[in-house]
């Protein structure tokens, strides 16, 4: 997948590129409005990660141009701009998602995957793990044709862990992903433990859940090798 990262902060763009390259994305970067518009006229990208606060122009104008010239690209806005207006306008202009800084790379990955799976709906939406099948698109969990009902937040946590397979996620990362803006004033990561406990309780009735591991001092991970 070809990704264009439009971000003026080099240190940050390096980290994002490292992360995405590790995940087999093919990354290019642009650090100014001008560089971004020129590269976008020449090439096509599947995913465009767009920082709104560029030194020489408004990122929202790039978004407008993308929507006209390559409308089926996935656009995710990465912004440190505080205004809600930006978020609403960005989504109205056709951005697929909006990630406020400081976001977690794991969250970027999960959101990208969710969008990709939604847009290019394939069998890739269903993950098989330890006898369970988890359908990200329909938000269902099955075990041998038994449907298992999870609360919305429980499914969010499970899918986030699955999308970041084999990588431990911290409680606060999970909390932030699941509760979004609400997480800022309620950093009670104990809630994650409660949800994990409930997920395990609901799943273990059908099969072993030792693939949903606790990582001491860090958080949780889904281990696909089990």
């Amino acid at each position: 997948m070809k990704v264009l990262l439009i971000e003026d902060e080099h240190t940050l763009s390096n980290e994002i590129v490292n992360f995405l390259t590790e995940l087999q994305y093919d990354c290019e970067t642009a650090d100014t409005f001008r560089a971004a518009t020129s590269i976008l006229t020449e090439r096509y990208f599947d995913v465009i990660l767009l920082d709104l606060g560029l030194p020489d122009g408004d990122g929202l104008n790039i978004l407008r141009a993308i929507k006209i010239n390559q409308g089926d690209s996935i656009v995710v806005i990465l912004s440190a701009r505080g205004d809600i207006k930006d978020r609403i306008e960005g989504l109205q202009l056709g951005a697929d998602d909006y990630l406020p800084k400081p976001f977690s790379l794991a969250e970027l990955h999960a959101r990208l995957q969710a969008i990709i799976r939604r847009k290019f709906a394939t069998n890739g939406n269903i993950f098989q793990i330890g006898g369970f099948s988890v359908d990200i698109a329909t938000r269902m969990v099955y075990c041998n044709d038994h449907q298992i009902l999870l609360y919305r937040k429980e499914f969010d946590i499970l899918s986030y862990l699955i999308l970041n397979k084999n990588r431990p996620l911290s409680r606060s990362q999970l909390y932030e992903y699941v509760w979004g803006d609400l997480s800022i004033s309620n950093g009670d990561s104990n809630y994650i433990d409660v949800h994990i406990k409930n997920i395990r309780k609901k799943l273990v009735v059908y099969a072993s859940v030792d693939w949903l591991e606790s990582v001491r001092g860090i958080g949780y991970k889904v281990n696909f090798s089990k």
């Binding site: 590790e22 440190a80 800084k101 990588r167």
Partner: peptide, 21 residues
């Protein structure tokens, strides 16, 4: 000030996350 702090925090976060791999 909060706004200016967001980018450096974002950088640090990404760095730490990448280090974890």
């Amino acid at each position: 000030a909060s706004h200016e702090l967001l980018t450096p925090i974002s950088i640090l976060r990404s760095k730490i996350e990448n280090m974890k791999f």
